[in-house]
Each structure stands twice: as structure tokens, then as C-alpha cells.
Design a protein around this nucleic acid. Structure first.
Lengths: 190, 190
DNA sequence: GATCGTTTTTAACATAGGTTAAAGGAAATT
DNA sequence: AATTTCCTTTAACCTATGTTAAAAACGATC
């Protein structure tokens, strides 16, 4: 099971057996059912996760009871709240399983101790953070420049595999519009 | 001059004299005038910059000739195109001086060689990328959840010092709305 | 202080998107 | 197959924002 995560990390930076053995005690596996809330907005998380199977959504909840999807993550993604992990602050969003999931759980504080052990962990952390920043910049650009219709087309182009796994309500929420408006857009396109 | 940048980096991670002397040959200083375009969208940059004085905007240009401000940066900010630097791709945005600026110029390819020299550079790169990712996540959240009026209030709260240095047209462009709409919002607030 | 360029506001009209509620469809359950 | 639940579309109406153009305010310069 943990071979999968070693392979994923190994693509970023080579990890020696010695370093790998330091990580092993900090990780375990976990299964969660569809609809389970893995992390609740407002709480602090001590873990981050690697998804070996399934699909989750990150979402913000507003005081008015609305929800907005921040992102979707599936097989081979690392997921967690950067803010909680880096600054020990309550998470600004929740994480919920949209399908039954198999996860690898990594204790963040323990993982943190590795940074001073070997440079490979800083390297891995740097490149993962850079990739995240690039993805978030792209989404910022789309919100800034593109219409909701264009954002919908981008979503379909970027995540063709997710189209059939995620219902339109969740997609609309990711695009920052209502289900009604997405329905109107879909009618226009056809 | 380069003391300033060493101090800024030193707050992230200690840099030994030996490591610092490896960086020194890769940096130089440069002055640019207001309105000068430092990086043109579509071109590749070989440098990134540290601003010691002045103010710049990052902006996207559309095929229709419109411009949208991505971000503003001033004294003590590191600026550059992550995409150009990390993936050797043309920059998706331009950089223009909004005031006369004093810059420290760092050659990215040369800087890149430092990563294998000492772990402090991976550490610095990691933490800078993490901070960038956190800022971009916050802006994503504001686009997703907040009205233009709320985003304007957030802008004023987050950058109180920039209010008098940036004209309303540029602020509207940063918020993703027109100058006309920002004017209406300002009228409503008062 | 008159003139010129820039920034900001205002007006009038057009479009995108929100709200609420109901109707249709699709899929799961009994 | 009938029932229930969830997902998607449609309709009617309302608000936020875009577009274009002009006016007003502001600042710099001569």
C-alpha cells in the first residue's frame, strides 16, 4: 500500500531507504464511506492525506448556509489544509468524500520533523507547494478573465474524467455559480 | 543594497556566509521608470526580482485588448513568473512599474543551481512557494464566495497602504469588475 | 488661473446571473 | 412495477455587472 505513495513522492525527488524508513512510522491507512466529512471547516487537522482510491471535494461553508466547492481530488493526489499545517490555524474549508475512499494518512507534525533530517523532504515540500501555487494561479486567472461559460468549458477540458463522477450541482458550486445558471449555460452550448 | 535581500531571506532560513557568497555573483541591481514593462506576457523570463523601492502590477492581457490586474507588489516583495521559472514556459502575464522602482535582479537558472548546493535554498524555495499558495488560495476563496463589494472591502483592509498609490481603474481591474461598477459600489458604501 | 491630460463619476441601456418554486427525469428501494 | 429520493431543467422575476459615452473632478504645467 505504501509503495504507491513512495512511487508518487519518488517522482519528485529520490528518497533513500533510510529516509523512507523514517517516514513509515508516521503513516497509516484508512477507509471512509461516501459523504463522510474528513475535515470540518473551523477545526485543526493533525493529518494530511494521500488518496489511493476515490474522490473528495474541498468546500467552504458560509454563515448563510451555502456551500462553495474549492476543489476536487482523486487517486494519487495529496490533500490537506496548508493553512492548518503551516500556520496551525483552523481550516478554512471542509473535506467530504464524494465516493468511498481509500486513504493514506500522514501526521503532519511528525512529517514536519523530517525537514531537518534530510534535504529530500524540503525538496518534495517545495515542489508540491510550487505545483499547488501554479494550480491556484490558474484558477485565479479563470475567475478574473473568463465568463462562467468559459470556466465550465475549461473544467470539462481539464478534468474530462470527473464529468461523470461529479453531479452538476457540485460543478456549478465549483464554478462559483448556481445550478440554475449552469443549466442555462448547458442549454446555450448545445 | 544586497543586505536588504539577505535580511529578507534570512528571516525564512539562516544563510551562511559561504552560501551567500555563492548567490552574490548571480544578482545585480536595476532601476526602472514608471510605466516600464519589465516582463511581457508571452515571453520567457530569465530573472526574478526583489523590489527594494516602488510598486508594480502583474496583469493579464486578453485577445480583445482588455487588461486584468493579477496582483500588486511593492517594497520587500519577491516577484517573478513561477510558470516561466519552473516549467520554462512563456509567462502568462506582464509586469509593469506603477512607480519608479529599484530592483534586485536574480538570474533564475543560476539561482536554480544553488538547490543542489545547500538545503537552505530548498527550504527558502519551499516556504516562499507555500506563502504564495496560501495567498492565491485566499484570493480564490474571495472570488468564489464574496461579492465585488465585499472583495473591495477586503482589498482595502488587506492593503491599506496601497489605496493612495493605485488608481481606482487598476483596483477595479484587480477585483475583476469595471471601473464603472467600482464607482457604483463606492457610491453605495458612503 | 487657463489649459491640457488623466482619473472618477454619472447616465442609459443591455446582459449575466441570483432566487424561488415547480415540473421533469433518472436512479435507487421496496 | 410502484414508490421514493435525488438530480436537472424550466419559468418568472429581480439584482449585479457590462458597455458606451459624456460630464465632472482633479492635477500638472505653462
Amino acid at each position: 500500500m505504501s509503495n504507491i505513495i513512495r512511487q508518487a513522492l519518488g517522482q519528485i525527488c529520490n528518497i533513500t531507504d533510510e529516509e523512507w524508513n523514517k517516514l513509515l512510522p508516521f503513516i497509516k491507512t484508512r477507509s471512509i464511506k461516501k459523504n463522510h466529512v474528513l475535515l470540518e471547516q473551523g477545526s485543526k487537522s493533525i493529518n494530511f492525506y494521500f488518496i489511493t482510491k476515490g474522490l473528495v471535494r474541498f468546500y467552504y461553508s458560509t454563515p448563510e448556509g451555502k456551500e462553495f466547492n474549492k476543489s476536487f481530488h482523486h487517486e494519487n493526489d495529496f490533500v490537506g489544509s496548508l493553512l492548518t499545517m503551516k500556520r496551525d490555524m483552523p481550516s478554512t474549508f471542509s473535506i467530504q468524500a464524494l465516493e468511498d475512499c481509500e486513504l493514506i494518512v500522514i501526521n503532519y507534525k511528525e512529517f514536519n520533523t523530517l525537514y531537518d533530517e534530510h534535504r529530500c523532504w524540503d525538496r518534495i515540500g517545495r515542489i508540491m507547494a510550487e505545483e499547488l501555487a501554479i494550480r491556484k494561479e490558474l484558477r485565479e486567472k479563470e475567475f478574473l478573465l473568463d465568463s462562467a461559460e468559459a470556466r465550465y468549458e475549461s473544467f470539462k477540458a481539464e478534468f474530462p474524467d470527473l464529468q461523470n463522477r461529479i453531479n452538476l450541482g457540485h460543478i456549478a458550486s465549483y464554478l462559483g455559480i448556481t445550478q440554475v445558471q449552469l443549466s442555462r449555460i448547458r442549454k446555450n452550448i448545445k
